[in-house]
Design a binder for these strands. Structure first.
Length: 437
RNA sequence: GCGGCCAUAGCUCAGUUGGUUAGAGCACAAGAUUGUGAUUCUUGGGGUCGCGGGUUCGAAUCCCGUUGGCCGCCCCA
């Protein structure tokens, strides 16, 4: 047993786990690239104030924060949004709009680990800055779907719940509630799925009992499952704000339907998302079976760049986590096999033949082939066994007999056939052989 | 921050009411086998029984603490 273990909630990535992580990163990166997003990165350590400004003081309890040797209050980044807002805000004037950026990075939160949640995890982040219209939401939701489709996940595996914080506020305003009351209701909505009617006790304590008729209307709104229901529910209200939001909803759902993505998206006003900086559409991706926490989440945050000292710049973004994604891929058998096989395994007769083999081995590697050979002198039988177990498609045999004739033997490890080729043609013959498979 | 379950070899686990030097399978390595891959056989390395303390003639086993893991609550950017 080792004297040291990794810290709680942190993971070691041995080669097999690392390859699984790389597969996830590769799919995300391919998706972002296809959508024309540009990759960026940023420091892991940031001023603590950056997160307090965005999320309030209470966030500190869930941060990896400390005082550095220069007396600065710092924190390991718990998310990318404040950082990317700072970066974009600093150069907003020089960046071509719309700004479409993504990153793949590790984040840290000081919380107790549980299923799908660790203290160190990776996230794919994609954001669009400088586009106030719902075109940005269409682009991002389509990208989110692509980033999950890329693993082989289908509409039977996951779906996206789409909601709208502005719509809620405008609706609650139309019902006669003030802004504080509306925030209280949203907080109750957030918990309603889990707690049922008890979710409203917090509201009652602060604002008093919600009128039965109003509550009824809130719950009706919450249960809306389609654009049609949404339109008919809102029809009686003469509100310009609501009409504008409805037009945006038609655009988003229409655009996604035109991309044939409508099966992936569900109208679900039960999603409001925890912290209060979202200003419009919000969305979360979930496993269809529903026993995992959210795969991804995001929404519009039009005020944040300005709040962090930048210009007034509209923004939408989302993040996908690697932990829940990995669990879902595991459940669905979509984890790729761990392959370490070389292309070629070189069998070497003895020390005399080794020098000859080394020249060709290095040339083959220079040509881009993955080539392995035994470090120590080994019996031929052992070497063939090793060649077979390595998963290589072919073996090159450098024995005394062959070299005396000026040839190298190529053995097809799949059907055990062999042929001799002149030594100076090894590269060409290997290329012909491997490209034919 | 709170609660439940758990911790023996790299992995999966056994280990009797507390009793000699803590075991198995798999994996790894060497050999049987000095020019051709299976299977098999032999052998080997690898453990402060998570860590610390206590009870006892004696602790992997019982008790307390602690660290870590899994799971749930809070929270979830």
């Amino acid at each position: 047993m080792a004297s040291f273990q990794s810290l709680p909630g942190f993971r070691d990535f041995y080669p097999e786990e690392f390859s699984r992580r790389q597969h996830i990163f590769r799919v995300w990166r391919q998706g972002a690239s296809a959508f024309g997003f540009q990759e960026y990165d940023a420091p892991v350590l940031e001023p603590l104030e950056l997160y307090k400004t965005k999320s309030g003081d209470e966030i500190e309890a869930q941060l990896f924060s400390f005082t550095d040797k220069g007396g600065r209050e710092v924190a390991l980044r718990p998310e990318m949004t404040p950082t990317v807002c700072r970066m974009v805000g600093a150069k907003a004037g020089a960046l071509k709009r719309p700004i479409k950026w993504f990153s793949i990075a590790e984040f840290y939160r000081y919380e107790r680990a549980q299923k799908g949640r660790l203290r160190a995890f990776n996230q794919f982040n994609a954001d669009i800055f400088g586009e106030a219209g719902p075109e940005a939401e269409i682009e991002l939701i389509a990208l989110l779907i692509q980033c999950l489709n890329g693993f082989g996940l289908t509409k039977d595996d996951f779906y996206i719940r789409l909601s709208d914080r502005d719509l809620w506020f405008f609706y609650l305003e139309a019902l006669g509630l003030n802004e504080n009351q509306a925030r209280g209701i949203l907080s109750a909505i957030d918990r309603y799925e889990k707690m049922g009617d008890d979710a409203f006790t917090g509201y009652t304590e602060v604002h008093g009992e919600l009128a039965a008729a109003t509550k009824e209307k809130v719950l009706t709104f919450l249960k809306i499952k389609s654009l049609g229901e949404l339109e008919s529910t809102l029809a009686p209200f003469k509100s310009d704000k609501l009409a504008v939001r409805l037009a945006d909803w038609r655009k988003v759902l229409g655009g996604l339907a035109a991309m044939k993505l409508n099966d992936f998206v569900a109208v679900d006003l039960g999603v409001v998302r925890g912290l209060a900086y979202y200003t419009g559409f919000v969305f979360e991706a979930f496993d269809r079976k529903g026993d995992l926490r959210a795969l991804a989440g995001g929404g519009r945050y039009n005020d944040l760049v300005k709040k962090l000292g930048g210009p007034d710049l509209p923004a939408v973004g989302f993040a996908i986590g690697d932990v829940t994604t990995g669990l879902l891929l595991e459940q669905r058998g979509l984890t790729p096999r761990f392959v370490t096989a070389p292309d070629i395994y070189v069998v070497i007769g003895g020390e005399l033949e080794r020098a000859a083999a080394f020249g060709d081995i290095h040339a083959l590697r220079g040509a881009g082939w993955r080539v392995e050979y035994p470090f120590k002198e080994l019996a031929f039988g052992k070497q063939f066994k090793a060649a077979s177990e390595s998963g290589a498609k072919l073996a090159l045999i450098y024995g005394g007999d062959e070299l005396a004739k000026g040839v190298v033997k190529i053995r097809d490890l799949t059907d055990r056939s062999e042929q001799e080729v002149p030594r100076d043609q090894v590269l060409v013959c290997v290329r012909d052989f491997l490209s034919g498979h």
